[in-house]
C-alpha cells in the first residue's frame, strides 16, 4: 500500500472553487431572497466545507473507517441540533391548559 498523492491541479482547482464560492456568498448576501438568503448562505458553506473535507483532508481517498468517523461527527451534530431546536421551534404551538 502506498500513499495517495493528489495531483497539484486538484489542490489548485479546489482552492479556486472555494474562492469563487466565497465571492458568490458575499454577492448573494446583498440580494434580497427573503428566507432563502439563509438557505443559500448555509448551502454554499456546506459545499465549501465538503470540498475541504474530501480533497484537502483527503477523505475521498481515505479508508472507510475514516469516512465513518466523519459521518459520525455530522450525525452527532445533527442530533444536538435537532433535539434542541425541535423544542425551541415548536414552543407555543399548542395551547397549555391553565396557562
Amino acid at each position: 500500500m502506498s500513499v495517495h498523492v493528489s495531483p497539484l491541479r486538484v489542490y489548485v482547482g479546489v482552492f479556486l472553487a472555494l474562492m469563487v464560492l466565497t465571492a458568490i456568498t458575499v454577492g448573494v448576501a446583498f440580494v434580497d431572497l427573503g428566507p432563502l438568503n439563509n438557505v443559500v448562505a448555509l448551502g454554499i458553506a456546506v459545499t465549501k466545507a465538503t470540498l475541504v473535507v474530501l480533497f484537502f483532508m483527503h477523505v475521498a481517498h481515505s479508508s472507510r473507517l475514516i469516512k465513518l468517523s466523519v459521518v459520525s461527527s455530522i450525525f452527532w451534530l445533527f442530533l444536538l441540533f435537532v433535539f434542541i431546536l425541535a423544542d425551541d421551534l415548536t414552543r407555543g404551538l399548542l395551547g397549555v391548559a391553565g396557562k
Binding site: 466565497t22 456568498t25 448576501a29 448562505a41 458553506a45 465549501k48 466545507a49 473535507v53
Partner: peptide, 18 residues
C-alpha cells in the same frame, strides 16, 4: 480550523445585508 471559519463568516458577517 478553516472549515469553522467557512461557517462563521456567513453566519456572523452576512446577516440581513440585502
Amino acid at each position: 480550523v478553516d472549515i469553522v471559519w467557512i461557517f462563521l463568516f456567513p453566519l456572523l458577517y452576512l446577516i440581513g445585508r440585502s
